[in-house]
Computed example of a mutant assay.
Amino acid sequence: MLTSHERLLRNLDWNLLYTFLTIVDESSITGAARKLSLSQPSVSNALKRLECHLGVKLITRRKGVFTLTSQGLKVYEYASSTRRVLADMAAQFSEDEHAIHGEIDIQIASHIHCPAFDQTLADFHQLYPNVLFTINTQPSAEIVRAVKDGEIHIGICNKKTSQTGLSFDLLGYEQMGFYCSRRHALYGHTDLSIEDLSGLSYVSFESDQPGEGLSAIAQLRSQQPFWGKLVAVSSNEEEIRRFILAGVGFGALTVEGARPYVEQGALWQLPPYQQLPVADIYLVTPENVPLSDVESRFVAMLRQANSRVVEQIHFAH
């Protein structure tokens, strides 16, 4: 059996509360009727029904007097709070029915700096503000595997494979330089050669391996067998930078990612200074699995942005 409290919650009509709020806001039955496009008797009847439901007098009305009772003031405060909550809900669910909604899940290698990708994120959000992005960092090999296994549909990585069922779009390149911090013995030296790195401890990305995303660094290491002891490994650029800044060892970072720290004096570039290792940047998507509408739009926009970047770099006059 319902309690009186439960019966009130079940039977109370929001339209009555809304009408009451309008009466108070307009300070008259006549004004509320005009605002609500209703007849005055309809508005008066709504007020009477609300008072009947609540069992209290809400408004004192007589010639020249229109005031809220103490109970009416309480109801007005509660109803006003409810109106704000419902207004927020209405705004959420009454948007343009043609607005694009959805989620885009992206995995990206943490060290990647790709202007076309950054620009696409900005442009896409401007066009489709209701789409939710989720971006996580993974090693390039793990990104390729995740796309192949259908766990995600969009990856940005340095690794390209010959596996069927995957599409790879070249998005650009990133140069990798070698850096140390103020805690390192070579910091501040300007007359260094690559031989000065001989035997020194270094930190490395997980994908700094032959055939992996940063194989260019592994190739340089094989050509210049001066490297010392490997002392730290991570798949995350932020953690590699943390190791370097802590003086654990020197290591490779993207030139773009390291530039602010070099300008601040926190990092110092080491040789080689010419012919730096270069890593390719790829967009990897499934060939045989249909993308969602928002994913398709994003991928198409990214490809267009990349084409514009390539044109500006190679064909601008």
Results as ranks from 00 to 15, higher is better:
residue 3 T to S: 15
residue 13 D to T: 08
residue 16 L to E: 00
residue 18 Y to G: 12
residue 23 I to R: 01
residue 30 T to R: 15
residue 31 G to D: 03
residue 34 R to T: 15
residue 35 K to D: 15
residue 36 L to F: 08
residue 36 L to C: 10
residue 37 S to C: 15
residue 39 S to Q: 14
residue 44 S to K: 15
residue 54 L to M: 03
residue 57 K to V: 14
residue 59 I to L: 01
residue 64 G to K: 11
residue 70 S to F: 13
residue 76 Y to H: 08
residue 77 E to Y: 11
residue 78 Y to V: 07
residue 81 S to A: 10
residue 92 Q to H: 11
residue 95 E to C: 09
residue 98 H to N: 11
residue 110 S to W: 04
residue 115 P to N: 08
residue 116 A to F: 02
residue 118 D to K: 15
residue 120 T to L: 03
residue 121 L to W: 06
residue 125 H to C: 13
residue 126 Q to I: 14
residue 127 L to E: 14
residue 131 V to P: 05
residue 146 A to N: 07
residue 149 D to G: 06
residue 149 D to F: 09
residue 166 L to H: 03
residue 172 G to W: 00
residue 172 G to T: 03
residue 174 E to L: 06
residue 175 Q to M: 13
residue 177 G to L: 00
residue 177 G to F: 01
residue 179 Y to F: 10
residue 182 R to S: 07
residue 186 L to D: 03
residue 187 Y to C: 05
residue 192 L to M: 05
residue 200 L to Q: 07
residue 201 S to T: 09
residue 208 D to V: 11
residue 208 D to Q: 14
residue 210 P to C: 02
residue 211 G to K: 01
residue 231 V to W: 00
residue 233 V to S: 07
residue 233 V to L: 09
residue 241 R to D: 00
residue 248 V to L: 10
residue 249 G to E: 01
residue 256 E to Q: 08
residue 260 P to H: 02
residue 261 Y to C: 07
residue 261 Y to D: 10
residue 267 L to C: 01
residue 270 L to M: 05
residue 278 V to L: 05
residue 278 V to F: 02
residue 280 D to G: 04
residue 288 N to K: 10
residue 288 N to A: 11
residue 293 D to L: 14
residue 298 F to L: 04
residue 298 F to G: 01
residue 300 A to N: 09
residue 305 A to E: 11
residue 311 E to T: 10
residue 311 E to N: 13
residue 316 A to P: 10
residue 316 A to Q: 15
